[in-house]
């Protein structure tokens, strides 16, 4: 536990020691601000039944998730392998799982920080639309649950990709490709809409885009929770196996 906490703190620290941390946060803030402008613009038009949180997804949400996740996670293992500190790390009495968990936790915390400006935007809107019940806490909660679960999946994918290589760019490309595949699955699921074939069902299950739409509407689907958590565990498990593989005979 001590090693886990020490490592998590170190990872968080190193994220903010480098300029990457601030660039990602600035980028995410810009994206959120952009979405906010789009949102306010839409609200000026005709009345809509779509919840505020869902309109927001139309803006830069996926842009931020798809690009920020690889940038946050690319350095986790790749940089340590590149600079050689991986060797000093793995010759201390810490287990592979502790290392993977700590890096994953730190990345997830940074990712969640990216979404604080969104909370601010929504609260500002809520304040100016006094009493109109624009934003209910349940929907807000479910949207943040969705953001968190999808974050788990993307950070786990990033951990795995970063563990594979000592080149940060390659790590970012791999995690971007895997993340994009999950994202695009939603579009693929579209044409199958009419027929309830196995392909459509399967693609719907992995389509994080559709899942996120549900969360933004305030619908918490256990299938989606199970999917995000199990696939996160799966990728973390793979990351752990990759770390361990140097000790295979």
């Amino acid at each position: 536990m001590q090693a886990y906490l020490t490592l998590t703190r170190r990872e968080l620290g190193s994220f903010f020691y480098s300029w990457i941390g601030y660039v990602v946060i600035a980028g995410a803030m810009f994206g959120t601000g952009w979405s906010f402008v789009v949102l306010v613009d839409k609200l000026q038009g005709e009345p809509t039944m779509v919840p505020l949180t869902e309109i927001f997804l139309g803006g830069s949400f996926w842009f931020i998730v798809l690009f920020a996740a690889p940038i946050i996670t690319m350095r986790l293992f790749a940089l340590e392998k590149f600079s050689g500190t991986f060797e000093t790390l793995m010759t201390t009495p810490v287990s592979d799982w502790q290392v993977v968990w700590a890096k994953f936790t730190a990345a997830l915390i940074v990712y969640m920080l990216l979404w604080l400006p969104l909370l601010g935007c929504l609260l500002v809107l809520n304040y100016f639309a006094r009493g109109s019940n624009l934003l209910d806490s349940g929907t807000l909660g479910s949207e943040y649950l969705g953001i968190f679960l999808i974050g788990c999946l993307f950070m786990a994918v990033g951990c795995f990709a970063s563990a594979l290589t000592r080149n940060q760019i390659v790590a970012a490309m791999i995690s971007f490709a895997i993340g994009l595949a999950f994202f695009l699955a939603g579009f693929m699921a579209g044409p199958f809409d009419t027929q309830q074939g196995w392909a459509e069902q399967a693609l719907n299950c992995v389509s994080i885009m559709n899942q996120m739409k549900d969360y933004a509407r305030g619908v918490v689907d256990t299938r989606s929770i199970v999917f995000c958590l199990t696939s996160s565990f799966f990728f973390l498990f793979l990351a752990c196996r990759v770390i361990e593989s140097r000790r295979w005979r």
Partner: peptide, 14 residues
């Protein structure tokens, strides 16, 4: 054991 690898890798930001 206390191990110092070749080229002594450290975290330069700390």
């Amino acid at each position: 054991i206390g191990y110092m690898p070749e080229n002594n890798p450290l975290h330069p930001d700390m």
